[in-house]
Design a protein around this nucleic acid. Structure first.
Lengths: 129, 129
DNA sequence: TTAAAGGTACGACAAATTTCGTACGATACA
DNA sequence: TGTATCGTACGAAATTTGTCGTACCTTTAA
């Protein structure tokens, strides 16, 4: 048996799970039906597939749900920022040995990062002082 | 059938594949034995498992190999920077809707990013003007 | 009061990824 | 020259992840 846990003991969200989290982050606590509809704007997914995923996410402790009504309402346990922090952390560690500035360099060297974005970042840093 | 391709048509490296790439990036072209030994410093892996992975990576066109000797030498096809660019790009798009500055904010808000790192980033930006 | 619509539960299947056993060829050297 | 060692090839098992069919419950409205 292999356990796939982050340092604070939350299982790593998979790709499909992340898709669901994104919807919940964007639109707040939602029903399976709502999430499934959103997903279907991007690709075809069966309702029960989404349902199953959300049930698994609940088992894993990534989502919790309000069962007081027939239409269960699902809610992320951790705040968006916190989960993203974990993912970012893992990403930086994996690819850049934990060096944020290395990641930055990559980002700045990347042609996809626009001048406008760079200005934005500069402003951000200056305002931190 | 589901194809998992990046925009420039390279299959996405999986987790285990990434581990192998890291070793090759760090130590340069290597034999399976060498890579396997490195991996085993982190976790137990069977030699033939690593071999198989590297063969798959070669089939996918992510690695190429020099078969002129009995001990084949494996080499990444794309430069480290390029592959990381792709991964970073995907990461930013997935989690931050493509906004590099949003990622930055997350990075700066993250307690794991040290003051020293932040200074480093500032210097970097200033030197870009 | 029943049929349709919409909900959950859950086992089973499918696909992708990872790991490994076994076969067998090369090399080294006692 | 034979046997231990080290290499590759490759099918298949194991695991993880993703999808779906079916059963069955609840609500709604004719």
């Amino acid at each position: 048996m292999k356990s796939n846990q982050t340092e604070n003991n939350l299982p790593e969200p998979t790709k499909a799970e992340l898709e669901i989290l994104q919807v919940l982050w964007e639109f707040g606590p939602s029903t399976v039906r709502f999430v499934n509809d959103k997903l279907n704007e991007l690709r075809e997914v069966n309702y029960t597939s989404t349902l199953k995923q959300m049930q698994i996410l609940t088992e894993k402790g990534i989502l919790k749900r309000d069962e007081s009504q027939m239409k269960h309402i699902y809610i992320p346990v951790e705040a968006e920022e916190k989960t993203k922090d974990q993912l970012l952390d893992r990403f930086v560690n994996t690819l850049y040995k934990g060096s944020a500035s290395k990641l930055m360099m990559q980002l700045l060297g990347n042609e996809k990062t626009s001048k406008k974005e760079i200005e934005e970042i500069k402003r951000l840093l200056d305002s931190m002082n």
